[in-house]
């Protein structure tokens, strides 16, 4: 096992570890808003580590760029989704679903 492979293994395992923790957040945190914190932030870290671990495996430049593009898209999607869910929760709490 080369040093690079070892580093990759550590990165991938750490990524999976953070995904597991993000899911743990769904159980441990008390309400929807705090759970969003767990899902967005911890899962993004997990995805970042996995992408970082896979980058040296990429067959060519375009494949590596595709990994980065996936990461960027996931970041944008999770930030937007988190915001929309939080907004919906807030409006429900205020009891005025059509107010924006």
């Amino acid at each position: 096992m080369t040093l690079l492979e070892l580093a990759q293994a550590v990165l991938l395992l750490a990524g999976c570890f953070f995904y597991a923790i993000g899911t743990l957040g769904l159980f441990r945190f008390p309400d929807t808003l705090t759970r969003i914190h767990a899902l967005t932030k911890v899962d993004n870290l997990g995805l970042g580590l996995i992408v970082l671990g896979l980058l040296p495996f990429a067959a060519h430049l375009a494949a590596a760029a595709k990994l980065l593009l996936i990461w960027l898209l996931a970041l944008a999607a999770s930030a937007t989704a988190a915001h929309l869910v939080a907004l919906a929760v807030r409006q429900q709490q205020e009891g005025n679903p059509h107010d924006d």
């Binding site: 953070f18 957040g25 914190h37 993004n44 870290l45 997990g46 970042g48």
Partner: peptide, 8 residues
């Protein structure tokens, strides 16, 4: 964002 993930 890495700090954020570690923090949570």
């Amino acid at each position: 964002s890495a700090v954020a993930g570690l923090d949570v």
